[in-house]
Protein backbone atom coordinates (compact mmCIF):
# COMPACT_ATOMS: atom_id res chain seq x y z
CA UNK A 1 0.00 0.00 0.00
CA UNK A 2 1.05 3.51 -0.68
CA UNK A 3 0.88 4.54 2.95
CA UNK A 4 3.43 2.10 4.24
CA UNK A 5 6.00 3.42 1.79
CA UNK A 6 6.02 6.83 3.36
CA UNK A 7 9.48 8.24 3.75
CA UNK A 8 11.06 7.75 7.11
CA UNK A 9 11.31 11.51 7.56
CA UNK A 10 7.58 12.09 7.50
CA UNK A 11 7.04 9.33 9.97
CA UNK A 12 9.59 10.62 12.43
CA UNK A 13 8.10 14.08 12.09
CA UNK A 14 4.72 12.67 13.07
CA UNK A 15 6.31 10.95 16.04
CA UNK A 16 8.04 14.15 17.13
CA UNK A 17 4.89 16.27 16.92
CA UNK A 18 2.77 13.71 18.71
CA UNK A 19 5.40 13.22 21.38
CA UNK A 20 5.49 16.94 22.08
CA UNK A 21 1.73 16.85 22.33
CA UNK A 22 1.86 13.88 24.68
CA UNK A 23 4.34 15.75 26.87
CA UNK A 24 2.09 18.78 27.13
CA UNK A 25 -0.74 16.45 28.13
CA UNK A 26 1.23 14.47 30.65
CA UNK A 27 3.52 17.03 32.21
CA UNK A 28 0.94 19.04 34.20
CA UNK A 29 -0.65 15.85 35.51
CA UNK A 30 2.75 14.34 36.25
CA UNK A 31 3.78 17.54 38.00
CA UNK A 32 0.70 17.45 40.18
CA UNK A 33 1.32 13.85 41.21
CA UNK A 34 5.04 14.17 41.97
CA UNK A 35 4.63 17.46 43.78
CA UNK A 36 2.09 15.88 46.09
CA UNK A 37 4.79 13.39 47.07
CA UNK A 38 7.44 16.00 47.87
CA UNK A 39 8.31 17.55 51.16
CA UNK A 40 7.18 21.15 51.52
CA UNK A 41 10.72 22.51 51.30
CA UNK A 42 11.59 20.52 48.23
CA UNK A 43 8.63 21.94 46.32
CA UNK A 44 10.51 25.25 46.17
CA UNK A 45 14.09 23.98 45.89
CA UNK A 46 13.42 21.25 43.32
CA UNK A 47 10.22 22.09 41.50
CA UNK A 48 10.68 20.09 38.26
CA UNK A 49 12.24 16.75 39.02
CA UNK A 50 11.33 13.62 40.84
CA UNK A 51 11.34 13.98 44.62
CA UNK A 52 14.57 13.12 46.39
CA UNK A 53 12.56 12.02 49.36
CA UNK A 54 9.14 10.52 48.82
CA UNK A 55 6.65 11.47 51.45
CA UNK A 56 2.99 10.81 51.96
CA UNK A 57 2.70 13.55 54.58
CA UNK A 58 0.37 15.64 52.46
CA UNK A 59 -2.05 12.77 52.04
CA UNK A 60 -1.81 11.72 55.68
CA UNK A 61 -2.55 15.22 56.90
CA UNK A 62 -5.33 15.59 54.34
CA UNK A 63 -7.04 12.42 55.51
CA UNK A 64 -6.71 13.55 59.08
CA UNK A 65 -8.30 16.97 58.62
CA UNK A 66 -11.05 16.00 56.20
CA UNK A 67 -13.57 13.26 55.58
CA UNK A 68 -12.50 11.92 52.21
CA UNK A 69 -14.22 8.62 52.94
CA UNK A 70 -17.52 10.46 53.07
CA UNK A 71 -16.81 12.62 50.00
CA UNK A 72 -15.93 9.59 47.90
CA UNK A 73 -18.88 7.64 49.23
CA UNK A 74 -21.20 10.51 48.29
CA UNK A 75 -19.67 10.91 44.84
CA UNK A 76 -19.91 7.19 44.14
CA UNK A 77 -23.50 6.97 45.37
CA UNK A 78 -24.53 10.01 43.34
CA UNK A 79 -22.78 8.94 40.14
CA UNK A 80 -23.72 5.29 40.18
CA UNK A 81 -27.31 5.75 41.28
CA UNK A 82 -28.04 8.49 38.80
CA UNK A 83 -26.44 6.57 35.92
CA UNK A 84 -28.41 3.48 36.88
CA UNK A 85 -31.69 5.36 36.78
CA UNK A 86 -30.76 7.19 33.59
CA UNK A 87 -30.28 3.80 31.94
CA UNK A 88 -33.50 2.31 33.25
CA UNK A 89 -35.69 5.33 32.61
CA UNK A 90 -34.36 6.22 29.19
CA UNK A 91 -34.37 2.66 27.91
CA UNK A 92 -38.00 2.23 28.94
CA UNK A 93 -38.99 5.49 27.27
CA UNK A 94 -36.91 4.73 24.19
CA UNK A 95 -38.49 1.31 23.88
CA UNK A 96 -41.95 2.86 23.86
CA UNK A 97 -40.92 5.51 21.36
CA UNK A 98 -39.03 3.19 19.04
CA UNK A 99 -41.36 0.23 18.94
CA UNK A 100 -44.92 1.51 19.23
CA UNK A 101 -47.09 3.84 17.27
CA UNK A 102 -49.14 6.22 19.37
CA UNK A 103 -50.48 9.72 19.31
CA UNK A 104 -47.90 12.42 20.00
CA UNK A 105 -44.96 10.09 19.58
CA UNK A 106 -42.90 12.46 17.48
CA UNK A 107 -43.67 15.30 19.84
CA UNK A 108 -42.57 13.32 22.90
CA UNK A 109 -39.39 12.30 21.14
CA UNK A 110 -38.48 15.87 20.26
CA UNK A 111 -39.55 17.02 23.69
CA UNK A 112 -36.86 14.79 25.14
CA UNK A 113 -34.27 15.65 22.51
CA UNK A 114 -34.70 19.38 23.07
CA UNK A 115 -32.93 18.83 26.40
CA UNK A 116 -29.73 18.16 24.48
CA UNK A 117 -29.32 21.76 23.44
CA UNK A 118 -30.55 23.40 26.64
CA UNK A 119 -28.03 23.39 29.50
CA UNK A 120 -29.76 22.46 32.75
CA UNK A 121 -27.64 25.08 34.55
CA UNK A 122 -29.98 27.75 33.24
CA UNK A 123 -32.77 26.29 35.36
CA UNK A 124 -30.74 26.48 38.55
CA UNK A 125 -32.94 29.03 40.26
CA UNK A 126 -36.03 26.93 39.62
CA UNK A 127 -34.26 23.77 40.69
CA UNK A 128 -33.09 25.40 43.90
CA UNK A 129 -36.62 26.47 44.76
CA UNK A 130 -38.04 23.05 43.96
CA UNK A 131 -35.42 21.35 46.12
CA UNK A 132 -36.11 23.69 49.01
CA UNK A 133 -39.83 22.90 48.77
CA UNK A 134 -39.14 19.17 48.67
CA UNK A 135 -36.82 19.50 51.69
CA UNK A 136 -34.00 18.10 49.60
CA UNK A 137 -31.74 21.11 49.99
CA UNK A 138 -28.41 20.04 51.47
CA UNK A 139 -29.07 16.43 50.56
CA UNK A 140 -27.36 14.36 47.87
CA UNK A 141 -30.71 12.98 46.75
CA UNK A 142 -31.28 16.34 45.08
CA UNK A 143 -28.10 15.87 43.05
CA UNK A 144 -29.15 12.38 41.97
CA UNK A 145 -32.51 13.65 40.73
CA UNK A 146 -30.94 16.52 38.80
CA UNK A 147 -28.39 14.30 37.11
CA UNK A 148 -31.09 11.85 36.11
CA UNK A 149 -33.12 14.65 34.52
CA UNK A 150 -29.92 15.92 32.87
CA UNK A 151 -29.03 12.48 31.46
CA UNK A 152 -32.42 11.48 30.08
CA UNK A 153 -32.32 13.48 26.79
CA UNK A 154 -29.05 11.93 25.68
CA UNK A 155 -30.12 8.48 26.86
CA UNK A 156 -33.38 8.62 24.92
CA UNK A 157 -31.59 9.93 21.86
CA UNK A 158 -29.02 7.15 21.69
CA UNK A 159 -31.24 4.32 22.85
CA UNK A 160 -34.18 5.12 20.58
CA UNK A 161 -31.91 4.98 17.55
CA UNK A 162 -30.46 1.76 18.78
CA UNK A 163 -33.75 0.04 19.58
CA UNK A 164 -35.09 0.96 16.15
CA UNK A 165 -32.31 -1.14 14.65
CA UNK A 166 -33.37 -4.24 16.57
CA UNK A 167 -35.44 -6.35 14.16
CA UNK A 168 -39.12 -6.45 15.01
CA UNK A 169 -39.20 -10.19 14.27
CA UNK A 170 -37.47 -10.93 17.54
CA UNK A 171 -40.18 -9.22 19.56
CA UNK A 172 -42.96 -10.67 17.45
CA UNK A 173 -41.85 -14.23 17.81
CA UNK A 174 -41.77 -13.65 21.54
CA UNK A 175 -45.26 -12.21 21.40
CA UNK A 176 -46.46 -15.32 19.61
CA UNK A 177 -44.98 -17.34 22.46
CA UNK A 178 -47.22 -15.28 24.72
CA UNK A 179 -44.66 -12.93 26.22
CA UNK A 180 -45.98 -9.71 27.78
CA UNK A 181 -44.51 -6.40 26.64
CA UNK A 182 -42.45 -5.74 29.76
CA UNK A 183 -41.09 -9.25 29.43
CA UNK A 184 -40.12 -8.61 25.80
CA UNK A 185 -38.32 -5.50 26.89
CA UNK A 186 -36.51 -7.28 29.66
CA UNK A 187 -35.75 -10.56 27.90
CA UNK A 188 -35.08 -9.46 24.33
CA UNK A 189 -34.36 -5.76 24.09
CA UNK A 190 -32.19 -5.18 27.14
CA UNK A 191 -29.63 -7.89 26.34
CA UNK A 192 -29.23 -6.54 22.81
CA UNK A 193 -29.00 -3.01 24.11
CA UNK A 194 -25.95 -3.48 26.25
CA UNK A 195 -23.34 -1.73 24.06
CA UNK A 196 -25.60 1.27 23.77
CA UNK A 197 -26.29 1.30 27.50
CA UNK A 198 -22.57 1.22 28.15
CA UNK A 199 -22.11 4.18 25.82
CA UNK A 200 -24.79 6.14 27.65
CA UNK A 201 -23.25 5.26 31.02
CA UNK A 202 -19.78 6.37 29.93
CA UNK A 203 -20.93 9.60 28.32
CA UNK A 204 -22.76 10.51 31.53
CA UNK A 205 -20.03 9.42 33.89
CA UNK A 206 -17.59 12.29 33.30
CA UNK A 207 -19.95 15.26 33.70
CA UNK A 208 -21.73 13.74 36.69
CA UNK A 209 -18.62 12.70 38.58
CA UNK A 210 -16.96 16.05 37.98
CA UNK A 211 -19.96 18.31 38.46
CA UNK A 212 -19.18 21.21 40.75
CA UNK A 213 -22.01 23.61 40.00
CA UNK A 214 -24.96 21.84 41.62
CA UNK A 215 -23.12 20.75 44.78
CA UNK A 216 -21.94 24.35 45.17
CA UNK A 217 -25.52 25.58 44.98
CA UNK A 218 -27.29 22.82 46.87
CA UNK A 219 -24.92 21.24 49.37
CA UNK A 220 -23.83 22.73 52.71
CA UNK A 221 -23.03 20.02 55.25
CA UNK A 222 -19.71 18.27 55.34
CA UNK A 223 -21.47 14.90 55.39
CA UNK A 224 -23.17 15.64 52.06
CA UNK A 225 -20.20 16.96 50.09
CA UNK A 226 -19.05 15.34 46.89
CA UNK A 227 -15.42 15.18 45.83
CA UNK A 228 -15.42 18.27 43.52
CA UNK A 229 -17.09 20.47 46.13
CA UNK A 230 -14.75 19.25 48.85
CA UNK A 231 -11.80 19.87 46.52
CA UNK A 232 -12.83 23.47 45.92
CA UNK A 233 -13.37 24.21 49.59
CA UNK A 234 -10.21 22.47 50.77
CA UNK A 235 -8.27 24.28 48.08
CA UNK A 236 -9.51 27.62 49.34
CA UNK A 237 -8.73 26.61 52.89
CA UNK A 238 -5.17 25.41 52.45
CA UNK A 239 -4.10 27.45 49.46
CA UNK A 240 -0.85 28.41 51.17
CA UNK A 241 0.11 24.88 52.13
CA UNK A 242 1.65 23.46 48.99
CA UNK A 243 2.25 19.89 50.05
CA UNK A 244 -1.37 19.67 51.05
CA UNK A 245 -2.84 21.46 48.08
CA UNK A 246 -1.25 19.15 45.53
CA UNK A 247 -2.49 16.20 47.57
CA UNK A 248 -5.99 17.68 47.40
CA UNK A 249 -5.81 17.97 43.61
CA UNK A 250 -4.29 14.51 43.19
CA UNK A 251 -6.87 12.99 45.47
CA UNK A 252 -9.63 14.35 43.25
CA UNK A 253 -8.01 13.20 40.02
CA UNK A 254 -6.29 9.89 40.75
CA UNK A 255 -9.41 7.69 40.98
CA UNK A 256 -10.69 9.01 37.63
CA UNK A 257 -7.28 8.71 35.98
CA UNK A 258 -6.94 5.10 37.13
CA UNK A 259 -10.52 4.35 36.12
CA UNK A 260 -9.84 5.83 32.70
CA UNK A 261 -6.54 4.04 32.19
CA UNK A 262 -8.20 0.70 32.93
CA UNK A 263 -11.22 1.32 30.73
CA UNK A 264 -9.83 3.76 28.14
CA UNK A 265 -10.80 1.47 25.24
CA UNK A 266 -14.39 1.37 26.40
CA UNK A 267 -14.36 5.11 26.99
CA UNK A 268 -13.21 5.85 23.46
CA UNK A 269 -15.60 3.33 21.92
CA UNK A 270 -18.56 4.51 23.94
CA UNK A 271 -17.87 8.16 23.35
CA UNK A 272 -17.34 7.65 19.65
CA UNK A 273 -20.64 5.82 19.45
CA UNK A 274 -22.23 8.64 21.40
CA UNK A 275 -20.45 11.30 19.41
CA UNK A 276 -22.10 10.56 16.15
CA UNK A 277 -25.54 10.16 17.49
CA UNK A 278 -25.23 12.91 20.04
CA UNK A 279 -25.93 16.56 19.31
Amino acid sequence: MARTKKPLLTKSLIYIILSIYAVTIFYPIFLMLITSLKENKEIFTNPYGLPHVFTLDGYIKLLKISNYGIYFRNSIIVTVTSIFFILVISSLASFAIAKYRFFGKRFIYFYFIAGLIVPIKLGTIGILQTMIKLHLFDNITSLIIIYIAMGIPFGVFILTDFIRLIPEELSNSARIDGCSEPRIFYKIIVPLLQPALAAVAIVNFIPIWNDFWFPLILIRSDSMKTVPLATALLYGQYETNFGLIFAVLSMASLPVIIFYLILSRQFIKGLTAGAFKGE
Binding site: A93, I108, G126, T130, I145, A149, M150, F185
Partner: peptide, 21 residues
Protein backbone atom coordinates in the same frame (compact mmCIF):
# COMPACT_ATOMS: atom_id res chain seq x y z
CA UNK B 1 -46.25 3.30 31.79
CA UNK B 2 -42.93 3.06 29.99
CA UNK B 3 -42.84 6.74 29.19
CA UNK B 4 -44.11 8.02 32.51
CA UNK B 5 -41.01 8.02 34.71
CA UNK B 6 -38.92 9.66 32.01
CA UNK B 7 -41.41 12.37 31.21
CA UNK B 8 -42.14 13.14 34.86
CA UNK B 9 -38.56 13.50 36.06
CA UNK B 10 -37.42 15.30 32.93
CA UNK B 11 -40.36 17.70 33.08
CA UNK B 12 -40.31 18.46 36.79
CA UNK B 13 -36.59 18.82 37.21
CA UNK B 14 -35.45 20.19 33.89
CA UNK B 15 -38.23 21.74 31.82
CA UNK B 16 -40.25 23.32 34.62
CA UNK B 17 -37.24 24.87 36.40
CA UNK B 18 -36.09 26.49 33.17
CA UNK B 19 -39.58 27.86 32.51
CA UNK B 20 -39.83 28.86 36.15
CA UNK B 21 -36.61 30.87 35.83
Amino acid sequence: LFLASGIIIYTIFMVVPILNS
